[in-house]
């Protein structure tokens, strides 16, 4: 019985956070973390539950393919996936399984359970996602710095133009434009697969570039704004060199909006990974999710929605932590 344990633990977490807040005051860090963790679990359970009932409430399923199955085979399949029990029993059992991190068997890839698919594909997706974030920073940071330092001059105009173009070229359009020259023309990069490190370049670039462009614009605006602030003037008055003034003071202020953007950017990169993994034949979460959705493999899609909820909640949590570390005036909510 894992589900009751999970629910009791969740309630305990909320209670502890409440107790801690009353004892240690509103700004207590541990209470904030406990509450945050409890909300992450609650959100995940809520998304799972809502998706579960939506799924059960709609007619149609993976078995009504072109070819009608024999009634006894279908009955056996339904029994195997527990589709013959009352809905709320199914839900309780699935929550129970979820608490043991068991997401059940996939309905289309029948040899695999959902968590087997997850274990295989999560590292791949994380690799692509990390590479995309790296591209985003690699493109956004220098471009934004250059534009802000030379504000109003031609490097600024050029960098801003690149940023504007990048922002208006969605991942799926970018892929179509980059593949012909880089893959077919010059033959530098493979068209699909992750067998070699070179295979990682194009998918992550397509994924990261639009966000790099937005990051550049945010950094430019933020840096121009902070360079104009009094504490930067104080730093200069102290006799600090220009490099130190920028790296230690101005950039710090400009990074706050940039880090605040990181949360939505990671969510966006996760979304974009659906396209990129689908296009480049990368066996990650995204391609499985799209496949699951197209073939109506509900347990797989459900499991992946749950995982995505967790991933996004955790990444926003980390971004909030970064923000707090970066700007002491921000408090953990």
């Amino acid at each position: 019985m894992s589900a009751p344990l999970l629910l009791i633990g969740l309630a305990g977490l909320f209670a502890w956070a409440h107790w801690r807040t009353r004892r240690a005051g509103k700004n207590d860090r541990w209470a904030a973390h406990a509450r945050r963790l409890a909300w992450v679990i609650t959100t995940t359970l809520a998304v799972y539950t809502a998706s579960f009932f939506l799924m059960r409430a709609t007619p149609g399923g993976p078995f009504d393919g072109d070819r009608a199955l024999a009634p006894e085979i279908e009955a056996r399949l339904r029994a195997r996936y527990q589709l013959d029990r009352p809905v709320w029993v199914q839900w309780w059992n699935s929550i129970d399984a979820l608490a043991r991190l068991d997401l059940g068997p996939s309905m289309v890839l029948r040899e695999f359970t959902v968590q087997e698919i997850l274990v295989q594909s999560l590292p791949t997706s994380l690799l692509v996602g990390t590479a995309a974030v790296a591209w985003m920073i690699l493109i956004g940071l220098p471009l934004g710095l250059l534009a802000a330092r030379r504000a109003g001059q031609w490097p600024d105009a050029a960098a801003s133009l690149v940023a504007a173009l990048g922002q208006s070229l969605p991942t799926f359009v970018l892929a179509g434009l980059l593949i012909p020259p880089l893959v077919f023309g010059l033959g530098w990069l493979p068209a699909a697969g992750l067998e070699s490190p070179a295979g990682l370049v194009l998918p992550s670039l397509c994924l990261g570039l639009p966000y790099g462009a937005q990051l550049a614009r945010l950094l430019r605006a933020g840096l121009i704004n902070t360079l104009d602030q009094d504490f930067v003037r104080t730093a200069r008055a102290k006799g600090l060199g220009e490099a130190r003034v920028i790296s230690r003071y101005a950039l710090r202020g400009a990074l706050v909006p940039a880090i605040a953007f990181l949360g939505p950017a990671i969510a966006g990169i996760l979304t974009g990974s659906l396209v990129v993994e689908n296009l480049f034949g990368i066996p990650g979460l995204g391609s499985h999710f799209v496949q699951g959705a197209l073939s109506r493999d509900y347990p797989l899609a459900l499991g992946l929605v749950t995982i995505y909820t967790l991933l996004i909640s955790i990444s926003t949590w980390i971004c909030d932590l970064l923000l707090v570390a970066l700007d002491p005036r921000i408090e953990l909510g």
Binding site: V47, M55, T58, A267, L274, L294, V305, T309
Partner: peptide, 12 residues
């Protein structure tokens, strides 16, 4: 994660 929920709903 709205995008994923939307895709899920669309597939349903």
């Amino acid at each position: 994660p709205m995008v994923f929920l939307v895709i899920f709903v669309v597939s349903l």
